[in-house]
Amino acid sequence: MATQAKEKLVAIVDDDELMRGALQGLLKAVGLRSRAFASAEEFLKSGLQHQTACLIADIRMPGMSGLELQAKLNTEHCRIPTIFITAHGDAKMRMQALRGGAAEFLAKPFDDEVLLENVRAALDS
């Protein structure tokens, strides 16, 4: 299982450079391969969405939001287990994300252990 997980890609979509760096660093520390994107558009353009086994996305971003990205992927029948992390998530947003198939909805700053559990669960699924 572990060897298989290593081949799977985790995508990070966040407009904040520091956050992208932090997430990539964390995933590297647990031996996971990741790619970071500054916007939802950049991620969609990369064509890597079909190889992505787990998506970590911010909700509020300039341009396409995290929820819009999720909806777009759903219409393309590209269902990637998604973990949302956001600084101001309200109950409504959380509901919308979970209904759209989100695996988890975490508030910043988040517990790294909880995030990693979710990422591992997504990669194992």
């Binding site: 904040d16 660093g25 700053p109």
Partner: peptide
């Protein structure tokens, strides 16, 4: 302000992991 603080928490945890 919360944004860089969240990044700091994650980076500090990563540092501890290494």
């Amino acid at each position: 302000v919360n944004q860089p603080i969240a990044a700091a928490v994650t980076d500090a945890n990563t540092c501890l992991r290494w």
